[in-house]
Design a protein around this nucleic acid. Structure first.
Lengths: 337, 337
DNA sequence: CTGAAAGCGCTTACAG
DNA sequence: CTGAAAGCGCTTACAG
C-alpha cells in the first residue's frame, strides 16, 4: 500500500506525532522540520488516510446529503448552493441516494448509524412524525431542506402560499375553470400546493371542482416527472369541458404538460412551480423557489449546528415568487409550448 | 456517543470478536448467540462504524464518483445506471465534485490520496496524457466514463461517429449550409464531435466553412449550457447568410438554441447530442447516448477490477443512435421550438 | 518544539 | 463455536 505516517516519520527521523502535527497545521513545529516533512510526504505521495483520521478524531469533516432521487432537477440546483457553502468551510460532501422503497426509513437509519459524517442534509425527504422523533435519538446534526419539522433546523418554501399566488393570478386574470396538475400528495409540499390551490379558489368564492385536480398515472417519483405531467394534461385536454388555465405542481411536470398541449394543439395557460434552469429557456411561467439559496443556507445552518449542538432550532421559509413567461400568454404559447 | 462493539459484547456476555462475527455474517456463530447479539444491538441502535471498519479491513465497500459538474443532465442519467449497478453489490456510493479550476488535477489527487473508496468512477473528466500516467501510480481501480485512455477501463460513446451521422443526415436531406454549435473543444468529446462534423462534410465533397462553426460566449461548463447554445444560435441566425441546418454538441445547448429560434421566429433544423430525459418532451432530434447503460457498465467494470486488479484493461465504445423528432421537420418546429 | 503512549472501534488470523 | 491479542493509521493530552 501507499505510505503511512510511520514511513514518513522514519524517513524524516522524527516521531509520528510530529508528522501528524504538520498535517494538522499545528503551530508547534519548527519551520525546518515542517518543510522537511512536507517534502518527504510529497515525494512519497503521502496524505493522511481519511478513515484513520475519522476514527482518531471522532470527526470526519464530511457532510452527507441524503436525497430520494439524485437525478432530479430540484436537487441539482440545491446542490449547487450546498457545494458553494461547503467550499468556504473545509468540509467534504458525500451524497447518498435514498430510494422510495418501503424500507426508506431503514435506509436513512443505516446511513446515520454508520456515523460517517459530522452532519446530515435531508433533501426532500418526507417522513412521518414518529419517524422524525426517532431520528432525534441519534443526536446527530440534521438540517432539513424542502421539509419542515419542529425538531430540526429547516429551510423550505411556502408551498401553500406559492400555489395560492399562482391560482389567484389566474382568478384575477378572469379565468374560470382553473385546473391543477398535482403530484401524489404523500408529502408535505404536494399537500400544501393542493391546499394553496383550493384555498385561493375558495377565497375567490369559487367552488373547488375535484374533477379538475388531476394526476398522472405514472407513480415514479411521486408523479414529479415529465411523463406524469404529460398524462395529466392529456386527461385535462380530453375532458368534455376542458379547463381554461392550469396550475402545475412542478416545472418538470409542466414540460410534459406542454408536450401534451403541443401534440393536441390545445393551449391551456400554465403556471408551474420551481423555476429550474430550463424554465427560462422553455418560457415556463412558474413560482420560483430560491433553490440555490436554500442549499446554501441549509448548509450554513448545519455547520453552525455542528459547532453548537445546543443552538436553538431555526426555520427559514421562503416565499416563492411568480415569474411570468410565455406559458401564460395564449398567443405566444402556440409557438412555444 | 452511541454504542460500540464493546457495549454490546458486555451486555451479551461475549467477546467483541463474536459480536464482530455476527455483523460480518460469519457462519461460525451459534444461532442462539447470534440472535441474542442482534437483539441487543437492535435495542441499543448499534451499527458498526464505517471508519473503524474501513481502517481494520483496509477496504471500505465505497465507490467514489468524481464528476466535474454534478448539476449536469448527462451525469444525472449516468448516475442512474451507477446506482442500479451498485445496488446489486453491497457498495455505497460517494460523489465528489471536481471543479474545473486550475487545480483540478490536485483535487483529483486529493480524493485518491484520502483513500476512502475501493474504486473510482471518473465521469466526464478530461485530463492530459501525463496526468493519466501519473494517476496510474496510485494503483487504485479507476474506470473512465465519457473519456478514453489506454491505461484505464473505460466506457464511452463514439463522438466522431455520432457527429458524422448527424451531419451526414443533413447532407442526405439536401441541406447545403450546415452549421455546428460547438462546445469549447478542450476535451475529447468536444473535439471529436467537431471532427466528425468536418469529416462528414468533407466525405460529401463539401467545404468546411469555419464561420458556420460557432460557440457561445459563456464559458461556463465549457459551453455545455443552455445559455451558450442560445448565444451560438443567435450568432447563426444573425449572419448575413444563415445556415439551413445545424448540428449541436449537446441537448442542453439545443434547448437554448430553440429559444433563440423561437425568439426570432427563425427556424433552423437541429440535431443535437445526448438524448437526455427532456429531449423526448421537447421534440429534440438527437444522437442518443446510452447514458444509463454507460453508468451501469462502468460500475460493473470497476467492481471487476477491484476484485481482480490484474485483469486486462477493457474499453467499451457505444455507437450513438440518431433519434428523429420534430426539430428536424421545419413545419413542426414552428410549433415546438 | 518534540516524543512516548494510549486510544479511536473495528477485523482477523491463531489457538482452543 | 468462541476468545485473546495484534493491528489498521491516525490524534492528542501529557511530559519534557
Amino acid at each position: 500500500m501507499s505510505a503511512t505516517i510511520y514511513d514518513i516519520a522514519r524517513e524524516a527521523g522524527v516521531s509520528i506525532a510530529t508528522v501528524s502535527r504538520v498535517f494538522n497545521n499545528n503551530e508547534n513545529v519548527s519551520e525546518k522540520t515542517r518543510k522537511k516533512i512536507l517534502a518527504i510526504a510529497e515525494s512519497m505521495g503521502y496524505h493522511p488516510r481519511a478513515f484513520a483520521q475519522g476514527l482518531a478524531r471522532k470527526r470526519s469533516r464530511i457532510i452527507t446529503a441524503l436525497v430520494p432521487v439524485i437525478s432530479n432537477y430540484f436537487f441539482m440546483e440545491v446542490l449547487g448552493g450546498i457545494q458553494d457553502a461547503l467550499f468556504e468551510y473545509d468540509y467534504d460532501l458525500n451524497i447518498y441516494n435514498i430510494t422510495s422503497a418501503n424500507d426508506q426509513f431503514e435506509q436513512i437509519e443505516y446511513v446515520l448509524k454508520k456515523g460517517m459524517a459530522d452532519g446530515y442534509l435531508f433533501i426532500s425527504l418526507h417522513l412521518k412524525e414518529p419517524q422524525w422523533k426517532r431520528l432525534k435519538r441519534y443526536q446527530v446534526p440534521i438540517t432539513l431542506v424542502d421539509e419542515y419539522d419542529t425538531e430540526f433546523d429547516s429551510v423550505s418554501v411556502d408551498s401553500i402560499e406559492g400555489a395560492y399566488t399562482a391560482t389567484r393570478h389566474f382568478v384575477q386574470k378572469g379565468f374560470c375553470r382553473i385546473a391543477m396538475i398535482s403530484a401524489y400528495p404523500n408529502a408535505k409540499p404536494s399537500k400544501d400546493r393542493l391546499l394553496g390551490y383550493k384555498r385561493a379558489l375558495e377565497d375567490a368564492g369559487r367552488m373547488v371542482d375535484n374533477d379538475l385536480i388531476v394526476t398522472g398515472d405514472d407513480l415514479d417519483r411521486d408523479g414529479f416527472t415529465e411523463k406524469a405531467g404529460y398524462q395529466a394534461m392529456n386527461k385535462l385536454i380530453h375532458m368534455e369541458n376542458p379547463p381554461e388555465a392550469c396550475f402545475c405542481s412542478s416545472d418538470i411536470q409542466a414540460v410534459g404538460a406542454m408536450k401534451a398541449q403541443n401534440d393536441t394543439q390545445v393551449v391551456v395557460p400554465l403556471i408551474s412551480f420551481d423555476d429550474i434552469q430550463i424554465a427560462h429557456y422553455l418560457g415556463l411561467s412558474t413560482m420560483k423557489q430560491p433553490m440555490y439559496e436554500m442549499g446554501k443556507l441549509a448548509t450554513h445552518k448545519l455547520i453552525e449546528r455542528i459547532s453548537d449542538p445546543e443552538k436553538v432550532v431555526s426555520h427559514t421559509v421562503f416565499s416563492p415568487e411568480l415569474v411570468l413567461r410565455s406559458t401564460l400568454k395564449s398567443e405566444k404559447v402556440r409557438s412555444t409550448s
